[in-house]
């Protein structure tokens, strides 16, 4: 696998950075890959569009920033408007369908939607939206082994919240797996979602 660039975006307070951090940590510590995480700082971390950038690669990562994302995760309308245009033509777009109302697929972009916030509320706490999204990402992208991400979630979240977070992860993962099987945009190959 060459370099895969991922942008996780939303608004401050949604756990956007943590979601990116868990992707990077799973890749670097559990999946035997190189992973570099960068995040936006300043006023953006306090309410408006905010993003985490993760680069995952089998080789040493030299240039530390995204050049053109392969995968975009959007958890807010504003983030969608800001970051969708930079997504690769054959990229993968994951959105929370209640937070991004008008998500559309352009070019050969594969679009997957999930009512992540609703799921999080059903599970009991809206705050685990980011972990639902992480599970969804893990299933749909096929970039990282499920167990690598799951165990990272388990060991990285605050003590006492493991069960809640794993539930959220599983929910997102299961929904993503189902979509892959049924959704027409998913194509025929199971792991086709990751651009070459």
């Amino acid at each position: 696998m060459a370099r895969t660039e991922i942008r996780v975006s939303g608004f401050g307070g949604q756990g956007v950075i943590l979601c990116g951090y868990l992707i990077g940590k799973s890749a670097a510590l559990k999946a035997g890959k190189q992973a570099t995480l960068n995040q936006s700082f300043g006023p953006e971390a306090r309410g408006s569009a905010c993003s985490a950038q993760v680069i995952v690669s089998d080789e040493k990562i030299l240039y530390p920033y995204l050049t053109q994302p392969d995968i975009l995760i959007c958890m807010s309308q504003e983030a969608y408007a800001k970051f969708e245009p930079e997504l690769k033509k054959d990229g993968l777009l994951l959105v929370d369908e209640d937070l991004v109302k008008d998500a559309k697929s352009r070019d050969k972009i594969k679009l997957y939607k999930i009512p992540a916030t609703r799921f999080a509320e059903e599970i009991g706490r809206k705050i685990v939206l980011n972990i639902v999204m992480l599970g969804f990402f893990t299933a749909v992208s096929g970039l990282l082994d499920k167990e690598a991400v799951r165990s990272t979630v388990e060991t990285s979240v605050p003590k006492g919240t493991e069960e809640l977070n794993l539930k959220a992860f599983e929910k997102g993962f299961a929904y993503g797996s189902e979509l892959l099987k049924s959704a027409p945009t998913a194509g025929k190959k199971k792991k086709a979602a990751v651009p070459a």
């Binding site: 990077g24 670097a28 510590l29 190189q34 992973a35 960068n38 990562i61």
Partner: peptide, 9 residues
Amino acid sequence: ECVGHMTEK
């Protein structure tokens, strides 16, 4: 700043 705020293994 780049190295300071960059997360890696």
